[in-house]
C-alpha cells in the first residue's frame, strides 16, 4: 500500500471533501435539536412494569429480542472469523496445491519478571472476578448488567490470568470447551424462541411473562393461542418478583429474559475468550488432535 495516495493535490481535495461532509452532517445534526420525535417509546415504557424491573433488559431481550439474537451472532461470527484468520478451519481443495496458508506464530511469554505480590494475588482476583461476572449475570432482569457484561468481565478475568501466569493460566479453558460453550450459548438463545413459537406462533414470545394472552392488558384482538399454564409457570415463576412502585404494586416476571441472558453470557464468554486464547497461544490443528 503506498502512502502517496493522500499526498499533494489529492490530499487537498480530500480535505475539502471532508470539510463539506463535516459541514453538511453537523448542520443537519443541529436541525435535529428539539425536533426529536418520541414515536413508539411511550408504548414500550407503559408496558415495562409488567415485565422485568430493569426496563433496559425488557427492551433489549424481549421487545427487540430477535434483534439481539442476531447482534449476539455478530460476536459469535466475529470469534469464528478471527480464529479462522489464525488457522482454525482453513480449507484446501483436494489435489490442488495453492499457496501455503499463512501461519501466524504464537506469542512469547516472559512472566518471570512479574512481581511476586501480583502472582500471589492473581488467583483470588480471578476467582472474585468470575464471581462478580456471575453476580452481574444473575442481576440481569433486576438491575443493570446482563449476559454480555458477564461475558466481558469473565473474559477479562481470563486475560488477567494469561498476563500473570502465561501458559499456566489458573483459569484453564480448553479450545474445545470454549467453542462448545460459545455454540451452546447462542443455541440456547436461539432455542428459547421455540416455546413461544410452538404455542402462539410468534417466535420468542415471552411465555413466562405472557402479557398478551393472560389478560394482563385488555383489548387485544387477533391472538388466537393461549399459552398453557405449565409453560407459563415453568418459565415465569422462578423469576417472579413483587415490584413496589409509587403507582402500585406489580407482580411481574421477566419470563425467559434471564435465561436468554445466560445463553448470551455463554456465547460471549466462548467467543471473546476464544479470541484471546487464539491470538495469544496460537492455533495448531495437530496439537488439538493429540489432546
Amino acid at each position: 500500500m503506498d502512502s502517496k495516495g493522500l499526498k499533494g493535490s489529492r490530499g487537498i481535495i480530500a480535505v475539502i471533501a471532508l470539510m463539506i461532509i463535516f459541514v453538511g452532517v453537523s448542520t443537519s445534526l443541529l436541525q435535529l435539536n428539539g425536533n426529536v420525535a418520541r414515536g413508539i417509546s411511550p408504548e414500550y415504557n407503559e408496558l415495562a412494569p409488567y415485565e422485568a424491573p430493569n426496563n433496559l433488559a425488557s427492551w433489549v431481550y424481549d421487545y427487540r429480542g430477535f434483534d439481539t439474537l442476531i447482534e449476539t451472532g455478530v460476536i459469535y461470527v466475529g470469534a469464528l472469523v478471527s480464529v479462522l484468520a489464525i488457522g482454525r478451519g482453513i480449507v484446501r481443495v483436494k489435489g490442488v496445491e495453492g499457496d501455503a496458508p499463512v501461519a501466524p506464530s504464537s506469542m512469547e511469554f516472559n512472566v518471570s519478571t512479574l512481581n511476586v505480590i501480583l502472582k500471589y494475588f492473581g488467583v483470588p482476583v480471578i476467582i472474585l472476578l468470575v464471581a462478580y461476572a456471575l453476580l452481574v449475570l444473575t442481576g440481569a432482569a433486576t438491575s443493570g448488567g446482563g449476559g454480555f457484561q458477564c461475558g466481558v468481565i469473565f473474559s477479562s478475568a481470563y486475560l488477567l490470568g494469561m498476563i500473570f501466569y502465561g501458559r499456566k493460566n489458573p483459569l484453564n479453558l480448553s479450545k474445545k470447551f470454549l467453542i462448545a460453550i460459545g455454540g451452546v450459548g447462542w443455541s440456547i438463545y436461539a432455542l428459547l424462541g421455540l416455546p413461544g413459537y410452538l404455542t402462539t406462533g410468534y417466535w420468542q414470545y415471552n411465555v413466562g411473562a405472557d402479557l398478551w394472552t393472560s389478560g394482563v392488558i385488555p383489548g387485544v384482538d387477533g391472538m388466537a393461542a393461549v399459552v398453557p399454564d405449565i409453560l407459563r409457570q415453568l418459565f415465569g415463576d422462578p423469576f417472579r418478583l413483587l415490584l413496589v412502585m409509587s403507582d402500585g404494586t406489580y407482580a411481574s416476571t421477566a419470563g425467559i429474559v434471564p435465561l436468554i441472558n445466560i445463553g448470551e453470557a455463554f456465547n460471549v464468554i466462548g467467543a471473546i475468550c476464544l479470541i484471546f486464547l487464539v491470538f495469544v497461544y496460537g492455533w495448531n490443528d495437530e496439537e488439538e488432535k493429540s489432546r
Binding site: I40, E43, D62, Y63, R64, G65, F66, G193, G196, T200, G201, Y202, W203, Q204, Y205, N206, L211, W212, I217, G219, V220, D221, G222, M223
Partner: peptide, 17 residues
Amino acid sequence: HWFTGHPAVLPTGGYTY
C-alpha cells in the same frame, strides 16, 4: 412475522395482531 409477539398499536388506542 412479528418477532417476540408484541402486537401493533392502533391509532385509536388498543392493540391488534
